[in-house]
Each structure stands twice: as C-alpha cells, then as structure tokens.
Amino acid sequence: MNTTLGDFGAGGRRSPAGDQLLNTKERAIDAATGEWQYQAHTSNTVGWHIPETPKTLLLKQKPSGWQLVRANKPIGSRDTLAEALDLAEQYMADRPEGRRR
C-alpha cells in the first residue's frame, strides 16, 4: 500500500490508499449534522438520511474520486474519502433540515 505523509496527519494530500486508514462509519456518523443521520456505508458508498422523509445524501466512489449526490444530481466531488466526508459534513451543516437551495 502506498501512503503519503498526509495519511498520518502530517499535512499535504492524502493518498487514495490512505482512505483505508479511516474508520468510515465513525467519521460518517460524526459528519451528520442537524436532522441528518448516518444510514449505512459500503466500500464505495456512504449514505445519510433524514428519518421519516425521502431526503437522502450519498457519497459515491467514482473512478476519478468521490462524488456527493442528492436526488441523483452531483453536488461536488473530492479526490479522497476524507475530503469528501468533509464536503458532506459542510453540505449537511448548511442544510440541517435537508432543504435544497
């Protein structure tokens, strides 16, 4: 496995292999903000939802990195899972009740 210093918190970019060092479930639970709740994850998808509503948010691994998706529409993408989880957290913080802007 190739890693970079960024994988160990030393600054710089994280390597794609370094994403394996994350506890995805724990980080996804921590990312949930407002009414959003962690739903589930697989090796290539992380999902959140607002209970008793159809509101969902997915983070999907693509060949070019990770993409945040809502209602089948891309919201943004990042190179690494760590960066993508940060993007998802910011999205949920900006929309704690799940409303779209």
Results as ranks from 00 to 15, higher is better:
residue 24 T to S: 03
residue 17 A to K: 11
residue 36 W to I: 06
residue 45 T to C: 12
residue 78 R to G: 03
residue 55 K to N: 09
residue 96 P to M: 05
residue 97 E to A: 05
residue 72 N to A: 13
residue 74 P to V: 07
residue 2 N to E: 13
residue 40 A to V: 13
residue 25 K to W: 01
residue 44 N to F: 08
residue 54 P to S: 09
residue 27 R to G: 02
residue 26 E to D: 07
residue 64 S to Q: 11
residue 49 H to V: 05
residue 85 L to R: 07
residue 53 T to N: 02
residue 91 Y to G: 15
residue 91 Y to K: 06
residue 90 Q to P: 06
residue 101 R to A: 03
residue 46 V to N: 08
residue 99 R to S: 03
residue 63 P to D: 07
residue 86 D to R: 14
residue 65 G to L: 14
residue 19 D to Y: 00
residue 23 N to L: 03
residue 53 T to M: 04
residue 37 Q to L: 05
residue 99 R to K: 13
residue 52 E to R: 08
residue 77 S to C: 03
residue 66 W to M: 14
residue 80 T to Y: 05
residue 18 G to N: 12
residue 25 K to L: 01
residue 9 G to A: 07
residue 67 Q to G: 03
residue 92 M to N: 10
residue 94 D to I: 08
residue 71 A to N: 13
residue 65 G to T: 12
residue 69 V to Y: 01
residue 62 K to V: 09
residue 65 G to E: 15
residue 90 Q to A: 15
residue 6 G to Q: 15
residue 27 R to Q: 04
residue 62 K to F: 02
residue 41 H to L: 03
residue 50 I to T: 14
residue 19 D to F: 00
residue 62 K to S: 02
residue 97 E to C: 01
residue 83 E to D: 15
residue 10 A to I: 04
residue 48 W to V: 05
residue 20 Q to V: 07
residue 88 A to W: 01
residue 8 F to W: 01
residue 13 R to D: 15
residue 64 S to P: 11
residue 63 P to R: 14
residue 3 T to F: 12
residue 73 K to I: 06
residue 12 G to D: 13
residue 21 L to P: 06
residue 17 A to F: 04
residue 59 L to G: 07
residue 58 L to G: 14
residue 30 D to W: 12
residue 101 R to I: 10
